[in-house]
Amino acid sequence: MKIAILTSGGDSSGMNVAIKRFVEYSYEKNFTPYFIYDGLEGLIDGKIKKANYKDVRGIICRGGTIIRSSRSKRWFDKEYRKKAYENLKKQSIDALIILGGDGSFRALNVFYKEFKIPFIGIPATIDNDIALNEYSIGVDTALNVIRSAIDDIRDTASSFSRAFVIETMGRECGYLALISAISNGAEMCLIPEMSYNLDRLKEKYLKEIKNGRNYFLAIVAEGVKKTEFIKEWFEREIGFESRITILGHIQRGGAPTTIERLRAVEFMSLALDNIENNPNKIVTFCDDKFILRNLEEIINSKYSLPKKALEIAKPLMGLDG
């Protein structure tokens, strides 16, 4: 059986671990592994190559993806999807494994409906916004990158008695901001999924200042689009000199953590164990176990943030706990 792998959309640390496992475990199972370079764009252009052990030598500690990725506008045109299918047939590829996020899975859904190429999808996005799934490859490393940055920023914030507004990635999903605010002891957390009450926060902060608080860390998800406003609010309403730190793409990079490496291996192992006799599924992680789900089930479900984390973070939003 010939199986090809591609990474699609934003890169995330841990993809290379999954790619390494893909090659090595494929040979254990007597499959023939192939790489598709440059994501969906590479599939359209026929950038398909047989993979071997040498290709994955030394990649387990590297962030990003050695087979590269892309976002493809051409994929929306059926003519190019047909070209992608023909490229797979030229190489006699029997099935696909795709690492990506929600957009990648939707693209895969269209492709499967048209050409019936068997597949397995693996969540790989720091946004962690896949429905019915609690963990995506890249999330733990991103959270640790944010933790390290916040630890460093705290040193300066406390030294100068300043407020720092730290913007995290995640598009319209506030997962990274939510978990980072809780786990790093921030004083404020703003995410797209929840309202917030600045009047209550102001009242709370002014009391805390009288009781000895001399700096603030505010974690703001990029989807809120209020980073500059919050900086000015701290200066105007709280009376603290403020700075903005936009973490940006450093959250995607870095050597994958131990948990990341373990999860990536487990995701890929389950994918290859099922690609031949139980394909057309997405491997998800929920309630501390891996579950195979139908793609349509995921696409038609709405993602939601962890309820327990939301309850804990309500005071950081000026809401009742």
Rank of each mutant, 00 (worst) to 15 (best):
residue 52 N to P: 01
residue 145 V to F: 00
residue 152 D to R: 15
residue 252 R to V: 05
residue 199 D to W: 07
residue 62 R to P: 00
residue 230 I to P: 00
residue 32 T to P: 00
residue 28 E to L: 09
residue 76 F to N: 08
residue 161 S to E: 10
residue 196 Y to H: 11
residue 101 G to D: 07
residue 91 Q to P: 00
residue 108 L to P: 13
residue 170 G to L: 12
residue 45 D to F: 04
residue 261 R to E: 02
residue 223 G to P: 08
residue 210 K to N: 08
residue 40 L to C: 13
residue 49 K to N: 10
residue 26 S to M: 06
residue 40 L to I: 07
residue 177 A to V: 10
residue 100 G to C: 03
residue 164 F to Q: 05
residue 56 V to A: 02
residue 32 T to I: 14
residue 107 A to Y: 11
residue 140 D to A: 08
residue 250 I to K: 05
residue 120 I to K: 00
residue 70 S to F: 02
residue 125 T to L: 12
residue 199 D to K: 10
residue 188 M to A: 05
residue 265 V to T: 01
residue 89 K to N: 09
residue 299 I to Q: 01
residue 235 E to V: 13
residue 102 D to S: 14
residue 253 G to S: 05
residue 76 F to V: 03
residue 30 N to S: 14
residue 296 E to S: 14
residue 213 R to Y: 06
residue 99 L to K: 00
residue 286 C to M: 11
residue 193 E to V: 13
residue 92 S to I: 01
residue 222 E to Y: 12
residue 26 S to P: 00
residue 218 A to K: 07
residue 216 F to I: 14
residue 288 D to H: 02
residue 152 D to P: 00
residue 295 L to D: 01
residue 179 I to P: 00
residue 235 E to P: 08
residue 72 S to H: 09
residue 250 I to Y: 07
residue 32 T to Q: 14
residue 245 T to E: 15
residue 93 I to C: 10
residue 148 S to Y: 06
residue 270 L to H: 15
residue 91 Q to C: 07
residue 96 L to V: 05
residue 109 N to D: 14
residue 238 I to N: 01
residue 113 K to D: 07
residue 154 R to E: 13
residue 214 N to W: 06
residue 259 I to P: 01
residue 71 R to L: 05
